[in-house]
Design a protein around this nucleic acid. Structure first.
Lengths: 348, 348
DNA sequence: ATGAAAGCGCTAACAG
DNA sequence: CTGTTAGCGCTTTCAT
């Protein structure tokens, strides 16, 4: 028989029970706030806990209950995701709420190859799906409560919360059209992301609705990086003929780069070129001309996802109520756009 | 006696043992790659595992072994930390290496009030210490292997890896001095962070070594945000008398803002004002004038910390070998600085 | 209201 | 080389 080396390290529920002069069951009841414990005993236990600095072993708890309050946040290890404002904001939102709800937040940076160890995980939040659909499908198959954020997954029975990127882009481009612009360029993000693809889609729809011809040469594809944004901006501005008088850029950080390039090339913002970004990144506020942009409720998306997942985890009946939500964006009008002027038309 | 509802959900080691026709111990041995298992049995077990899609319960494992491969990453929930390039880069580095070493990464965004639940945590990485020293001390007292990064903790018996911010700042300012500048300003980061404080210290030392008078009015304190950088830049550039001809800025994102402001105010970079930043943030590469900056090995710091912690965790003998390392920086000379010119002196 | 005892799934002595 | 068995620390019946 092994000797219990209790002296060595950890104090367990036994020690507390002994000190308080009750059974471990009673201690357990106090820990779990079960009300059927006599006041007197409860106090004795609480004091023993305090005195011994007892913290229950989460492993034992989880083994015994079969429940887990671990939330895994799966972030695709994809370069572009780290260029953006997006990732950090999401981590912050999710992290803060998990802390508040006493959920353990496990971070997984994965690529398409890694397969998640799902054992012992209470729920999963997928921060976008980029090349890791298989992981999502695994999770779903195993019955672990899952959520996808920043990607509206239509063809899978899974709850998701995403930004209405099409609508956001539509609003942005409509605004430009309302200002009189007809030659409107678009600098896309990385089109393997749904967000970028949908923003592009919104751009196209806005043109179509207003009977403006879509021109392939007005579209510049990037990977969201400032470097590619610069290249795109140079090409767009230097177009020999019929250069755009306005541009919708898929992210604020790229839009800022476009502004910089425009100034370097001697163009006035918004005089010569109107710009709308996307994100409402605080950086857009500074600079000589503040950036008109589409605000997306990232923090709200993050928080809602945790709340929803928490519900899914704690729901007893496994009634799989899939809920798909699209969060609205908001056009934030600042200084980087201007109505089409007569000069624009003359230059034509 | 309770009925084992094995049918319901999880397959356990028992099911595998039964299917393979061996004892659970043998299964356990195969799982843990203990070599004393006959080839034939090993294969049978492996097949059973595959067939049943068995994944061992980490909770049971940890409860049984008393070991945990969970690494907690504690990030102070401090606004400034999120302005910066820093946080994401660190998360990325640590996340990637944890994934590779099969460590579970638990993310904790804490403030000074939250007390960590240390139970069941194998090791802790503190990403800077800002108002949460008590948590560090708790962790140390409890004997959990801990590491601090981005903060050189001198007065505590704890391993740490930090950037040599003093040296980095010293190099930056020396470079400016070598170019002939004498009126050198400094825009600090948030001085409650050690990084910002040390950069400030490096600035002061460089002046002193070169017998240049330290002027309080050349120093502008910020919280690392672009907004405050803008304010600082405006004040610095508009100084009525003896405005600095060069400035050392505590972060690249602020340095970029300073550049923008300078241009708005009609100053040439580097003609009228030389600028050195800190971080080697890729954003500094774009823009009309690429930014001279101090590169800090963030990813390396992140990775080293995980490796070191992993060592601490797996070390049998609890010989507490505290190791404090300071990682060197590197001055990256690009285009934002210029020797002091005759014109500068004339304007005086 | 309380406690005894049977698990939760796994590991590690120990005996064979 | 393999199996038996006693825990790991906690929860949860089931009696009392």
């Amino acid at each position: 028989m092994r000797v219990k080396k209790n002296s060595s390290g950890n104090i367990s529920i036994n020690d507390v029970a002994r000190l308080a002069g009750v059974s471990i069951t009673t201690v357990s009841r106090v820990i779990n706030k079960i009300l059927t414990v006599k006041e007197k005993n409860r106090i004795r236990v609480q004091e023993a806990v305090k005195q011994l600095k007892f913290q229950p072993s989460i492993f034992a708890q989880r083994l015994a209950t079969g429940k887990s309050n671990v939330v895994a946040l799966v972030i695709p290890r994809y370069e572009g995701i780290f260029y953006s404002y997006y990732a950090l904001e999401l981590i912050r939102g999710i992290g803060t709420l998990c802390e508040a709800l006493k959920l353990d937040l496990l971070l997984h940076l994965t690529d398409s190859r890694t397969s998640l160890n799902l054992k012992g995980i209470g729920g999963i939040i997928f921060a976008d799906i980029i090349g890791n659909r298989a992981q999502l499908e695994d999770a779903l198959a195993s019955g672990i409560p899952s959520m996808v954020i920043n990607n509206y997954v239509e063809d899978l029975e899974v709850s998701c919360i995403a930004i209405d990127n099409i609508r956001g882009a539509l609003d942005a481009v409509n605004y430009l059209i309302d200002l009189g612009h007809r030659k409107i360029g678009h600098i896309t993000g990385d089109l393997i992301t749904q967000a970028a693809a949908w923003r592009f889609e919104g751009y196209k729809r806005a043109l179509k609705k207003n009977n403006i011809e879509f021109r392939q040469d007005y579209v510049f594809k990037t990977d969201y990086s400032r470097g590619q944004a610069r290249l795109a901006a140079e090409k767009l501005i230097k177009m020999p003929q019929a250069a755009p008088t306005a541009v919708f850029v898929a992210s604020d950080s790229m839009a800022l780069e476009v502004m910089t390039v425009a100034r370097e090339l001697g163009r006035k913002i918004p005089g010569d070129l109107s710009i709308v970004g996307f994100d409402d990144n605080p950086s857009g506020l500074y600079g000589p001309v503040s950036l008109t942009t589409v605000r997306q409720p990232l923090i709200r998306m993050a928080e809602e996802s945790v709340k929803e997942l928490n519900l899914l985890i704690s729901r007893k009946d496994k009634g799989i109520k899939v809920k798909k939500v699209l969060l609205p964006t908001e056009l934030v009008i600042r200084e980087s756009c201007q109505p089409l002027t007569f000069e624009h038309i003359q230059k034509q």
